[in-house]
């Protein structure tokens, strides 16, 4: 099973483990992530304005590239996932945007939202199935209490991303269970870590990340897993050292359980 793969700029640089572990696990689980031949940075955030066209084109080109290979497009980074799905949705539903984008890009065939976009977690849940994942687990993470941190970009806006119930998600908790560990539910798992505001107002980022970390810690989690490089950074750097739980990419956890971490 081959998927078109959009890594995103950060996975090639500061978040290489997110990518590396994901590929190793994919091998074990029987699917391949084939990187798109050409791609540009998605921009990190989807511009909500109706009259922003140019900033969204990188995403549309990536979607079109996957369409040309007749494949589903898979991504790992929460932010890229958010941008790609929203761009796809607008190409499909927003006639004005779609027309303008297609007119400008002059693709061989106009792109109208045909590609399916999946986050790696969705591949695990919907294509492979968590039961199948469980079968491949060599080192079950028994006894570990793991808090899933979704952040915002993985789940919202719920109607467009269609990833899971935005207020009561289960996808990462189900994965954690399949790996033999105990998931910890804490209300701040879908509250924002601060995101890019760390560049503008560090105090605000500190406030948000600390609130998340404290909530996870008080609910007795041993560690946190996430899918977003920026969330990882915020939770690691913008929280007080005391009481800070270790934060991992979910692919690293998956790799450990499947025995392909080293």
């Amino acid at each position: 099973m081959v998927f078109s793969y959009y890594p995103g700029c950060t996975l090639k640089n500061k978040a290489q483990d997110l990518d590396m572990y994901a590929r190793r696990c994919a091998e074990v689980l029987g699917f391949t992530l084939e990187e798109l031949p050409q791609w540009q940075c998605c921009g990190g955030a989807y511009s909500m304005a109706q009259d922003e066209i140019a900033s969204k084109l990188a995403a549309v080109r990536a979607l079109n590239s996957a369409k040309e290979q007749d494949r589903t497009l898979v991504t790992l980074c929460s932010a890229c996932h958010n941008v790609l799905k929203q761009a796809n949705h607008d190409m499909k539903e927003n006639e004005e945007f779609s027309q303008k984008a297609n007119n400008y890009m002059k693709l061989a065939q106009p792109y109208l939202g045909e590609t399916k976009v999946l986050h790696y977690l969705e591949v695990l849940r919907d294509v492979i199935g968590f039961d199948e994942v469980k079968k491949h687990v060599k080192n079950p993470l028994t006894g570990k209490r793991i808090g899933a941190y979704y952040g915002c970009l993985l789940l919202r806006p719920g109607k467009v991303l269609q990833m899971d119930n935005p207020e009561n998600p289960k996808i990462m908790e189900d994965l954690i269970r399949a790996l033999g560990a105990e998931p910890v539910i804490y209300a701040s798992r879908n509250e924002c870590c601060g995101g890019y505001v760390t560049m503008e107002d560090k105090n605000l980022a500190r406030k948000k990340s600390t609130a998340v970390m404290q909530n996870a810690a008080e609910m007795k989690a041993d560690l946190l897993v996430t899918a977003c490089p920026l969330c990882l950074y915020n939770l690691k750097k913008n929280t007080p050292e005391e009481g800070r739980l270790p934060v991992l990419y979910f692919t690293e956890l998956l790799a450990e359980a499947l025995g392909v971490k080293e």
Partner: peptide, 14 residues
């Protein structure tokens, strides 16, 4: 440790 994502997103927004 700052990921590219932070810089790019901040530029996109600001």
């Amino acid at each position: 440790d700052l990921p590219q994502q932070a810089i790019v997103t901040a530029l996109r927004k600001y």
